[in-house]
Design a protein around this nucleic acid. Structure first.
Length: 760
DNA sequence: TATCAGGACTCAGAAATCTCCCG
DNA sequence: TCGGGAGATTTCTGAGTCCTGAT
């Protein structure tokens, strides 16, 4: 009752100007959403007369109820969420949770993963930034962020590190020599290359949003033109052979290629494909081909399978030739010159035409992604550069000279109308600087996170509903590493949410669950339609607030109806310069890695065990960030194989033990040098196989624990690489064990600058 | 000055391709 | 030495976040 009174008090407290404006905006948005959803509902009413989930009268009833509620409800911004298409949502929800229907199956397959218990703990409040870090080397001053992070290093230190690095290289090349002369030469070359590597992180950065001064490139590589099918590959409609026009045939092949994919069994995919395919047909084709179910793409499918098989069966020479051609293309188009440096381009090929493959339950899946022509392309380069030449007989859409952006080429895709870009590789200066900056912002958050936490805890008690919602949302973003959750246009994308866009139906409140008080059960689809499922104990005040936010709301209503990402980020910006919701994810991921590494690394263990610890720390972050993957198709088999190896190794150990025992007995009798040596060698042999077994067991554990968890995303995007590098240096573990070649290139800046005592 | 759509960029998992090891 | 397959790496492109500039 007390809470209820409080609720009313809060609700009546809604007269601030900005609040009203926000309400208005939200209301407008809501109306739009509502119309869209009504449209959808109408459609679904007509399309499925056998609708399992609701009847027309149910719809009418709920619609009336909503109308009444709208009148009853005094608060505009809250109203905005009363009109959502409940039936549609209910239907989708049922599909999501059903394990038997097609869509449900897919979601289960893609997202059926139940998140393991999140392990993130509250961050150590006692943290004191390391002085060493603050004096971190590099010549230039940082421009926009962290005034107090001035990596101005005395030159002497730089030299020291260079010496150290060189010494390491010498050691490495010495090892290489032992392998053989040729290998040694390779190392030498590698060493030379390493020395030639440009250390952009030691140079000044541009100011005022300038990204480059000079940019020259050769433009994009277009998708190869369509090659018509050979005559022997036939398409049948209703059992009869039909020769398709080239345009119609090309689109048909997109579908034919995908026949084995689950996509082609989905209704939306088929419907969208068929609609777009018909647009490409000649009038006579259009009048004949009226039912996708009567189309037989089987021969096309076989044709592409044969082609792929033939590619595999190519001779060594043919494969080599192909590889050389690819390499030539890469050399020509895969690099650009940006400010006197040759930089690798990430995606210099234009996306080929095909069928759109949205993730999850995407309403546009199956639509035709049209072929991009030079006339669609915008080129960005500097005025004083050689402008790329368009293919013969064509011209570019526009040529721009905008050095405030990082892209080289852009075009607008036809499915969502969004812009696609060609940009540089992660190893480039332009990407690396941004990456470094990202981690510096997260480190700045570390310094003020306690204050921010204290503030949002205080805000849980605020008189203003808006402030309370903001505070609870921020608590989730901080504690659970949820994404911000921008608003999305209804019907344009799959129905996924983030923190600010959570709906009532996405959480369940349990006063007591699994022996714990005040539990919140989250269940929703996040980015890429990956399911987020988690049960978390929360503080009583958060729990009570959630009850309050959910009061008088329908499952389809927004949980935080007075909040959106722009309000939240605006608030965060006031708390710390450059702070946004996403910074919390980076911060919590990195700090978790650092903590876990400290906790899990056992100094006495060998390298393999230490790497297992590293992977476990990495895994803790991946779990926190909900980075999942579909278990590899060959998972069970590969585990079995590994187990077989382990069993064999165990047998080997048994044998080695017996042999050692025998040798010892022999030595006891004979007591000569020969038998003594034999005992020694048997001992060593036993030790060797025991180590091998240990390695295999570690590998098995690692693999099992990794079954449904994707480590790559967090490693590449959330973990300050300097933490990993420092760990490697501290425990004398080669960087190669943690990062592969590409990753080392991306994190070259961190590898160069982090010492073993680096603290995030 | 506030709003909002468009733009620019990061992050994401799946699929394709490459590499290496084992029989 | 070769072929095949498992695992690692790379590519691809869709899906987010956040910012900016026009209105």
């Amino acid at each position: 009752m007390r809470e209820r009174n409080h609720h009313e008090r809060i609700d009546s407290h809604k007269s601030s100007k900005s609040d009203e404006k926000h309400k208005h905006k939200e209301h407008k948005h809501k109306e739009h959403k509502s119309k869209e959803r009504d449209k959808d509902r109408e459609k679904s009413k007509h399309s499925s007369s056998s609708s399992k989930n609701h009847s027309n009268s149910e719809y009418k009833e709920s619609s009336e109820k909503r109308h009444k509620e709208k009148l009853k409800h005094r608060d505009g911004s809250s109203d905005k969420h009363r009109h959502k298409n409940k039936e549609k949502r209910k239907e989708e929800k049922e599909k999501l949770h059903s394990s038997s229907s097609g869509v449900g199956d897919k979601i289960k397959k893609e997202n059926g993963f139940t998140s393991p218990p999140r392990i993130k703990q509250e961050v150590d409040d006692e943290y004191l930034p390391s002085v060493k870090v603050e004096n971190k080397p590099t010549k230039r001053a940082r421009i926009d962020d962290d005034v107090d992070f001035k990596p101005k290093k005395p030159k002497i230190e730089d030299e020291k590190r260079t010496k150290k690095r060189k010494a390491e290289e010498v050691t490495k090349s010495k090892k290489g020599k032992m392998k053989g002369q040729a290998d040694g030469a390779g190392k030498k070359k590698k060493k030379k290359e390493e020395e030639d590597k440009w250390k952009w992180w030691e140079e000044e950065r541009y100011t005022d949003g300038v990204k480059w001064k000079f940019l020259e490139h050769k433009g994009p590589v277009f998708a190869p033109p369509y090659i018509p099918l050979p005559d022997k590959v036939k398409f049948y409609y209703d059992g009869k052979h039909m020769k398709l026009s080239p345009q119609a045939e090309e689109v048909a092949t997109f579908f034919g290629k995908m026949l084995d994919h689950e996509y082609t069994t989905k209704d939306i995919f088929r419907k969208n494909f068929f609609k777009d395919w018909r647009k490409e047909m000649k009038p006579e084709e259009k009048s004949t081909i009226v039912d996708l179910n009567k189309c037989d793409f089987e021969e096309m499918n076989q044709h592409f399978k044969d082609q792929s098989e033939a590619r595999k069966q190519m001779s060594k020479e043919e494969k080599l030739k192909l590889k050389e051609e690819n390499e030539k293309l890469l050399q020509e188009y895969g690099f650009c010159i940006m400010d006197n440096h040759k930089e690798r381009i990430a995606n210099f090929r234009i996306e080929p035409p095909g069928l759109f493959r949205g993730r999850g339950n995407h309403p546009k899946m199956g639509m035709l992604k049209r072929r991009i022509r030079p006339e669609d392309i915008i080129i960005n380069c500097s005025k004083d550069s050689k402008v790329p030449v368009p293919p013969h007989g064509h011209k570019w859409k526009t040529i721009r000279h905008d050095n405030k952006v990082t892209w080289l080429v852009s075009w607008t895709e036809n499915i969502q109308g969004s812009i696609k870009y060609i940009m540089l590789n992660p190893s480039s200066r332009i990407k690396g600087e941004k990456d470094w900056q990202k981690y510096e912002t997260a480190r700045r958050l570390k310094k003020c996170v306690d204050k921010i936490r204290a503030q949002y805890r205080e805000d849980w008690k605020s008189k203003e509903m808006k402030v309370r919602q903001r505070a609870v949302a921020l608590y989730f973003i901080d504690k659970l590493a949820l994404r911000a959750g921008n608003e999305k246009e209804e019907g344009e994308t799959a129905d996924t949410v983030g923190c600010c866009s959570l709906r009532v139906e996405h959480i369940k409140l349990h006063t007591e669950l699994d022996g714990q008080e005040y539990m919140v059960e989250f269940d929703f689809l996040g980015k890429d339609s990956i399911r987020y499922y988690n049960k978390v104990p929360v503080e009583k005040r958060v729990f009570k607030n959630l009850q309050l936010f959910m009061e008088n709301k329908q499952p389809e209503d927004d949980l935080f109806d007075r909040l959106n990402t722009s309000i939240l980020n605006k608030h965060l910006q006031e708390l710390m310069d450059g702070l946004t919701a996403k910074v919390f994810r980076t911060y919590n991921a990195s700090i978790t890695l650092q903590q876990q590494l400290k906790e899990l690394t056992n100094p006495d263990e060998n390298v393999a065990a230490k790497i297992l610890s590293y992977n476990r720390a990495n895994r803790a972050v991946a779990i926190l960030c909900n980075h999942q993957r579909a278990p590899p198709k060959t998972f069970e088999k590969s585990m079995q194989n590994l187990q077989t190896k382990i069993d064999a190794k165990k047998d080997q150990i048994g044998m080695a033990r017996r042999e050692l025992k025998g040798a010892k007995a022999d030595h006891k009798v004979k007591k000569d040098e020969k038998t003594r040596k034999s005992v020694e060698s048997k001992k060593k042999a036993l030790q060797r196989v025991e180590e091998q077994l240990m390695k295999l067991e570690v590998q098995a554990t690692d693999r099992e624990e990794n079954k449904q968890i994707a480590l790559g995303t967090s490693k590449l995007n959330y973990l300050d690489p300097r933490i990993s590098i420092a760990w490697c240096k501290k425990w004398d573990i080669q960087t190669e064990k943690i990062y592969n070649k590409t990753q080392r290139e991306k994190f070259a800046w961190a590898i160069d600058m982090a010492d073993e005592d680096y603290e995030f």
